[in-house]
Computed example of a mutant assay.
Amino acid sequence: MTDKLKAAANKTAGSVKDGIGKMTDDQSLQAEGKAQKTKGSVQDVSGTVKGKLGNDI
């Protein structure tokens, strides 16, 4: 379950950074936000797989 929580936190933080980057025209911050959202998506999938396998991986 902790992977799912980390995923949600990374997706949220990434969305905030992406949004602020868009508003301030800061392409670096926007790219960082998009990368963090992607990391959150990967963690979400990992958490789902671990959950289905009973955290044995």
Rank of each mutant, 00 (worst) to 15 (best):
V42R: 13
T2G: 03
K37R: 12
A8W: 10
S15V: 06
S46M: 05
G47E: 13
D18G: 01
K50G: 01
L53N: 14
K4D: 08
T48Y: 13
N55K: 09
S28G: 02
A35I: 06
G47S: 11
D56S: 09
I20L: 15
G54L: 00
V42E: 14
D44S: 14
K22G: 05
A35P: 01
D44Y: 15
G21A: 03
G21H: 04
Q30M: 13
V16F: 12
G51W: 03
G54K: 01
L29V: 00
Q43H: 09
L29S: 06
L53R: 08
L29Y: 04
L29W: 02
K39D: 14
G19C: 07
V16E: 10
G21Y: 00
V16P: 04
L5S: 02
I57S: 02
K17Q: 02
G14C: 01
A7V: 08
K37E: 13
S15M: 13
G47D: 13
A9E: 11
A13R: 06
K11E: 14
M1V: 06
M23N: 10
N55D: 09
K39C: 00
Q43S: 09
T12I: 15
T38Q: 07
L5A: 03
A9Y: 04
T48N: 13
E32H: 05
A8H: 12
G33W: 00
K11L: 15
Q30S: 14
Q27V: 04
A13G: 00
T48I: 12
K22N: 11
Q30E: 15
K22D: 15
G51Y: 05
T48G: 11
K37G: 04
A13S: 13
K37S: 13
A31Q: 09
E32F: 02
D56I: 00
I57Y: 11
K11V: 13
T2S: 10
M23W: 04
V42L: 13
M1D: 04
G54I: 02
T2P: 07
E32C: 04
T38V: 04
K34H: 02
G40T: 07
G51K: 14
D44I: 09
L29Q: 08
A35H: 01
T2M: 08
A13N: 03
A31C: 00
N55R: 01
D3H: 12
V16H: 02
G54P: 03
V49A: 11
K22Q: 07
V49D: 08
I57L: 06
A35S: 05
K4T: 06
S28I: 03
I20D: 14
K52I: 05
V16M: 12
T24D: 03
Q43A: 13
K50F: 01
Q30Y: 03
G54R: 01
V49K: 10
K37H: 04
D25F: 12
